[in-house]
């Protein structure tokens, strides 16, 4: 909890990186000049083209959750170097670089919080940390979110963005796909709802496991999603892909997404979905992590 609080008080690396200081911001997609205060008021969505700026895990916490209800969990998990991976750069050095750059320890932040009063268990990927890639800690954190949802009988929410399984942890990264997916079986058995929000981009190992297994699959406009990356597909088929291939809108028409939901309506949509399920929250068992 400690490091997260410090981040809330001052430092916000995502914002520092993606939204430069000054009054005006240029849209990454349509080049429109946007007044920063207005952009923030618009949930970091471009007023001209609807482009969704990256907002990091903190952005989603403030977008979705009731104010001051988020309590981080599992921040005590630390990445190790099981393969002693040394190709090009030592894995521990690589990790340290990202930890310093982002102020985060890993690519997922988990916790509990409330949406319109309803307690949910959630894991949020942060793309600024190693492209949100999944190693043992990410897999374990998502698994613990599932188990917390089971223990407390509260809905599970995953906000996904990931380049896929992290290659520096080799086969152990791949096995996180199995670990998380097998625990989702238990969630189904207990009839606890699971909502996935796909954000830009969600690919490969994460898309080929829990991000595809929601009872409800929402996606942000324009979010790229899928198994293989666009460049790999183009190399395979020997031609370029049509505009909009693998976007949320593309997969909506192909039947793999329930709704494409703009950020402005995300909290309301989530709340509406949750309203279909009885509140089974076990209040006495909730123990926030010691600060």
């Amino acid at each position: 909890m400690a490091w997260f609080e410090r981040r809330q008080r001052g430092l916000s690396p995502q914002k520092r990186k993606e939204i430069p200081k000054g009054l005006w911001v240029k849209c990454d997609k349509c080049d429109a000049m946007l007044y920063k205060a207005e952009l923030e008021r618009d949930f970091n969505v471009c007023a001209h083209c609807g482009y969704h700026f990256k907002i990091g895990h903190q952005g989603y916490i403030s977008l979705i959750m009731d104010p001051d209800t988020f309590a981080e969990t599992d921040s005590d998990l630390r990445t190790v170097d099981p393969l002693e991976f040394k190709e090009k750069e030592n894995y521990p050095d690589y990790m340290k670089r990202y930890q310093k750059r982002t102020g985060m320890m890993e690519a997922v932040v988990s916790g509990t919080g409330r949406i319109e009063g309803r307690l949910v268990s959630l894991s949020i990927h942060d793309g600024s940390f190693l492209a949100g890639s999944m190693g043992s800690v990410v897999g374990e954190k998502v698994t613990r979110s599932i188990r917390r949802a089971l223990d407390l009988e509260i809905p599970l929410l995953v906000v996904a963005t990931s380049g896929g399984a992290r290659m520096q942890e080799g086969i152990l990264s791949l096995m996180q796909m199995a670990k998380t997916s097998l625990w989702l079986n238990r969630l189904s058995e207990e009839k606890i709802p699971f909502v996935v929000v796909i954000t830009n981009p969600t690919m490969a190992g994460v898309m080929a496991s829990y991000a595809s297994l929601g009872d409800f699959t929402l996606a942000e406009p324009g979010a790229m999603m899928g198994f293989a990356g666009g460049r790999v597909i183009e190399q395979t088929i020997g031609s370029s892909l049509p505009e909009g291939f693998q976007t949320a809108e593309f997969f909506l028409t192909r039947g793999f997404v329930d709704q494409v939901v703009p950020r402005t309506g995300l909290r309301e949509t989530l709340s509406r979905i949750l309203s279909y399920f009885p509140d089974r929250e076990k209040k006495e068992e909730l123990e926030p992590e010691a600060p």
Binding site: A178, S181, M207, A208, G226, F227, A228, I233, R254
Partner: peptide
């Protein structure tokens, strides 16, 4: 590897693999 083609993608390669992992679990 699973086939990284446009058609495979369009028909839900990621979903198919995820579904199998999930179903094999139970």
């Amino acid at each position: 590897g699973a086939y990284p083609g446009a058609g495979a993608e369009e028909r839900g390669q990621a979903e198919a693999i995820a579904r199998n992992i999930y179903e094999m679990g139970r």
